[in-house]
């Protein structure tokens, strides 16, 4: 039970749920950069979200299956073919042994998830098979997938219905090249009056699973730039001295000393994984109470289809 990678550029990794409760010993979260798309994919093939899927950054991607399998495609939508036959995103697909899955570049959004019934076997580190590239932990040998890699597929525990499953249309998020992320002021947001919240920023080419650099008109901060290092989480927008913002993603460090000007809210953090270089990003101001209400609303919508998923 396996599949073999033919092409996986520029970066594809095995990702599942994040690592939690270990940031105090310096172990970052990792996990799918867009955890909602990963979970939707898992749902279509009957996997638990702790099973790894392939997170493909931008593509192209090609793999040949050495067994029959149920698979699904979620996240950033690109042209997709199984043995030259076009196949849709967001539904359970059957692949036969010897068939090839081929994906092109997405037109909007950055990361596509290929889920396989039974899950792809990754090295489990700290309760998760998710890959953490900087320290070569988890996933496939702790590294990005390469041509020739053979990925083992786990035993599917779930009997799929004969009719393919489809993600409910209200949960199929369309991505564009503009992102509006709900956010809350961070501890170092400037006190003085600012029109920051009406500005838009542009993602630069400095983008990885650690974070995304944003260019634009950021406020100048009067505070000391060497702040004492403090715990920091994905979703933080830091403002280093060179004046460009850096939005932290799941592989970010666990502590940091740059000014933390805002925090993308938990409700919208999954969208950060779909921002690509050149995209525009705006932040919509929320109070912590408003953010909690937003989160509950989105959480309830997701629970109708994925009872075990938590944002």
């Amino acid at each position: 039970m396996s599949l073999e990678i033919i092409q996986a550029s520029p970066q594809s990794t095995l990702q599942a749920t994040p690592r939690t409760g270990m940031r105090h010993v310096g172990i970052p979260a990792s996990g799918a950069a867009d955890p909602v798309s990963h979970a939707l994919g898992a749902r279509l093939v009957g996997n638990d979200i702790s099973c790894a899927s392939i997170e493909i950054t931008y593509g192209p991607f090609e793999a040949v299956f050495h067994c029959n399998a149920h698979i699904s495609l979620t996240g950033a939508v690109s042209e997709a073919h199984i043995n030259d036959k076009p196949v849709p995103f967001h539904e359970t697909l059957k692949v036969r042994s010897g068939e090839t899955l081929k994906l092109g570049h997405p037109t909007a959004g950055l990361r596509t998830y290929v889920s396989v019934g039974g899950g792809l076997k990754g090295e489990v580190f700290a309760s998760s098979p998710s890959t953490y590239l900087p320290a070569h932990l988890g996933g496939f040998d702790g590294r990005a997938l390469m041509s020739g890699d053979v990925l083992a597929i786990g035993e599917a525990s779930f009997h799929l219905p004969d009719e393919p499953l489809r993600t409910p249309s209200e949960l199929q998020l369309p991505f564009t090249n503009a992102f509006a992320l709900r956010a809350t002021s961070g501890p170092d947001f400037p006190d003085r009056k600012t029109d920051f919240w009406s500005r838009s920023f542009s993602a630069t080419r400095r983008a990885s699973r650690i974070g995304i650099e944003l260019d634009g008109d950021f406020p100048t901060l009067e505070l000391n730039r060497n702040l004492p290092s403090a715990g920091i989480f994905p979703g933080a927008l830091q403002l280093p001295p060179q004046g460009r913002g850096f939005l932290l993603l799941p592989d970010c460090q666990t502590t940091g000393g740059y000014p933390h000007i805002l925090q993308v809210n938990r409700s919208d953090r999954h969208l950060m994984g779909q921002i690509r270089p050149g995209d525009s990003v705006m932040f919509l101001k929320r109070t912590p109470d408003e953010a909690a209400a937003d989160l509950k609303q989105k959480q309830e919508l997701l629970l109708t289809w994925m009872p075990d998923f938590r944002l």
Binding site: R23, H24, P228, S229, A230, D289, A292, L295, K296, R310
Partner: peptide, 20 residues
């Protein structure tokens, strides 16, 4: 998460479980 910093302790919580 409960993370010790140089001069702080940062606590992360789930706002769906308990309000701010």
């Amino acid at each position: 998460e409960v993370v010790v910093g140089r001069e702080s302790v940062t606590v992360q919580y789930d706002p769906c479980e308990t309000s701010p």
